[in-house]
């Protein structure tokens, strides 16, 4: 049987809400992570280091 009208409506609503969240995630990917990586490189931080022993 085909999907009912309401199941399509609810799907569209939920999909929109998910997309909203994914947009936030995308935004973090696009800006925050980008900035973070740039600063990481600017500060010449090392990606691989020997972990300090825990006291």
């Amino acid at each position: 049987m085909p999907p009912t009208s309401q199941s399509i409506e609810v799907k569209d609503e939920l999909t929109a809400e998910i997309e909203k969240q994914l947009a936030i995630f995308d935004e973090v990917l696009q800006s925050d992570i980008k900035k973070f990586n740039e600063q990481f490189n600017a500060l010449n931080l090392e990606y691989l280091v020997i972990e300090k022993e825990k006291k």
Binding site: Q21, L22, I24, F25, I33, F36, Q39, L43
Partner: peptide, 25 residues
């Protein structure tokens, strides 16, 4: 270093945003 301190703050902020997204999903 202030630069690193900023980055720690950015990291915490991102984790907070991530957490909000994950918990919504």
């Amino acid at each position: 270093e202030q630069g690193v301190k900023d980055m720690i703050a950015m990291s915490k902020d991102m984790k907070k945003k991530f957490s909000e997204v994950e918990k919504a999903l």
